[in-house]
Amino acid sequence: MEPEPAASDPKPQAPPSSKEMDDYCEDMSSLEELANRGAWRSIIDKVSRARALSLLQKPHDHLTYLAFNALAFTKLRRFNEASAELDSLEDLQSIHYRYETYPKIYPNRVGSMVPFSLRWLHALIPIKLGQRQQGMDRFYTLLDFVRRKIGEKEHDHALAASLSLWRKREVFVVNCIIGHHLSQKEFGVCLSFMKELLSRSSDPLLVSQLGYMQLQVGDLEGAKVSFLKVESEGKSNGSLSEVEFRNLVNRNKALVYLVGKDYVSAVREYEECIERDSSDVVAVNNKALCLMYLRDLSDSIKVLESALERVPTLALNETLVVNLCSMYELAYVNHSDIKRTLSSWIARVAPDDFDASCTRT
C-alpha cells in the first residue's frame, strides 16, 4: 500500500478519463449487472468512488446512484445508512427533481426524474427501522401516486406500454401493503385489496394469492374455488409461461392437500412441478417439508441438498437453508459439524445480502 501524501503536500488529482466517466456514469448497465449478481458491497464502493471523483454531473445521475446505494444498504440490512441516503433528499415532488427545471440539460423532456425504486425505499425504510405507521402512510401515498399516473395514461393509446408498466407497479405496491398487513394478521384489509385488484384483472397469480389468503383465514372452500378458477381459466390473462402456469396449478393443489394433512398427495403434486422445472424452489422446499412430516428425514435432506448442488443461485435462500438446518438437527448427532460445512460453502457462493445467521452455527 502506498503511503498517503502529507496534508501539507497535497498532490493534484488528474481529471477522470472519458473511460472512467463511461464506467461510472453513463453506463448504468454495470450497476444493474452488480445488482443482478447480488454484489451489493461493490455497488456501494462504485457509488462512493463516483462521488469522490465528482463523476456525477447531471441531476438524474445523482438520483440514480443514490437509488442504487440506498438499495444496496437495504439489501445488506444497513437500514440506518439507507435512511441517511434518503434523508439527503428534498421532497420527492420537488421541482428540483423534474426534467423541465433543467431545459438546457434535458431539452424537450418533462416529468419526474425520481426512480420508482427510490419512492418504494422511501416507504420501506421506516418500517425496517420500526416506524411502521410512517412507512404504511408512505406506502398508501405511493399507491395514490401510482394510481394518479394510471389515470393520466388510461385514455391515451400512445401510452399503452407506459400504462402497462404503471399497472404492474400498482400490483407491486398493493402486494407490499398486503404483505405488511398480513404480518399483523390484518386479513380483512388484505382480502379487500386483493378483490379490488381482481375486479380489473383475472391474472392467475393474483387469483392464487387470494386463495392463499383464504387458506390463512380458514376459508378452505373459498380457496378451492379460487384455485379451481385459476385452473379453469388458464394462463391467458397473465404473463406466465406454460410451464410456470402448470406448476402454479400443481402447487395450489398441493396446498389444499397440505391443509388436509395428505402429505403423500402433496408430494406427488410437487414432484410433477420439479419434473417440469427443476429450479422450482417453492416446490422443492415444500416437497422436502412434506417428506419430513412423513418422517422420511433422509429423503427430505436429499431433496434440499440436491437442489443446492443443482441450482445454487436459485435454491440458496434463507427459508430453504433454515429448513435444511432444522432437518440436520433432527437427523444427526454431529449436526454442528455438518452445518459448519454448509456455512463454509454458503460463504463462497452466496450473494452479499444472504443472511448467513440462518444456519444457526
Rank of each mutant, 00 (worst) to 15 (best):
Glu4Phe: 09
Ser8Ala: 11
Asp9Arg: 13
Lys11Ser: 11
Gln13Arg: 08
Gln13Ile: 11
Ala14Met: 10
Pro16Trp: 10
Glu20Arg: 01
Asp22Ala: 14
Asp23Gln: 14
Cys25Pro: 01
Glu26Thr: 14
Glu26Gly: 10
Ser29Arg: 13
Glu32Ile: 11
Glu33Cys: 11
Leu34Asn: 00
Arg37Val: 00
Gly38Leu: 10
Asp45Gly: 02
Ser54Gly: 15
Pro59Val: 02
Pro59Tyr: 13
Ala67Lys: 03
Asn69His: 10
Ala70Ile: 09
Phe73Lys: 00
Arg78Ala: 07
Arg78Tyr: 10
Phe79Ile: 02
Asn80Gln: 12
Glu81Trp: 01
Glu85Trp: 03
Ser88Leu: 09
Glu90Leu: 13
Tyr97Gln: 01
Thr101Phe: 07
Lys104Asn: 08
Ile105Tyr: 13
Ile105Met: 11
Tyr106Cys: 08
Pro107Lys: 12
Asn108Ile: 10
His122Asp: 15
His122Thr: 09
His122Asn: 15
Pro126His: 12
Ile127Pro: 01
Gln131Cys: 14
Arg132Ser: 15
Gln133Phe: 06
Met136Asn: 10
Asp137Ile: 02
Asp137Lys: 14
Thr141Asn: 07
Phe145Asn: 06
Arg148Lys: 08
Arg148Glu: 10
Arg148Thr: 13
Arg148Gly: 07
Gly151Asn: 12
Lys153Pro: 01
Glu154Leu: 15
His155Glu: 10
Ala160Leu: 08
Phe172Gly: 00
His180Lys: 01
His180Gln: 09
Leu182Gln: 15
Lys185Gln: 15
Lys185His: 05
Lys185Glu: 14
Val189Thr: 12
Met194Leu: 15
Lys195Met: 04
Leu198Cys: 06
Arg200Asn: 14
Arg200Gln: 15
Asp203Lys: 01
Val207Arg: 01
Gln209Ile: 01
Gln214Cys: 06
Val230Glu: 02
Gly234Cys: 01
Lys235Pro: 09
Gly238Ser: 06
Gly238Asn: 02
Ser239Asn: 12
Glu242Arg: 13
Val249Arg: 00
Arg251His: 10
Asn252Met: 07
Asn252Trp: 03
Tyr257Glu: 09
Lys261Phe: 04
Glu271Trp: 07
Glu272Ala: 14
Asp280Thr: 06
Val281Met: 09
Met292His: 09
Ser298Glu: 05
Ile301Glu: 02
Lys302Trp: 07
Val303Gly: 04
Val303Gln: 06
Val303Ser: 03
Glu309Arg: 13
Val322Gly: 03
Cys325Gly: 06
Ser326Cys: 15
Met327Gly: 01
Asn334Met: 08
His335Val: 12
Ile338Gly: 00
Lys339Leu: 08
Thr341Cys: 12
Ser343Pro: 05
Ser343Tyr: 05
Ser344Tyr: 14
Ala347Asn: 05
Thr359Tyr: 03
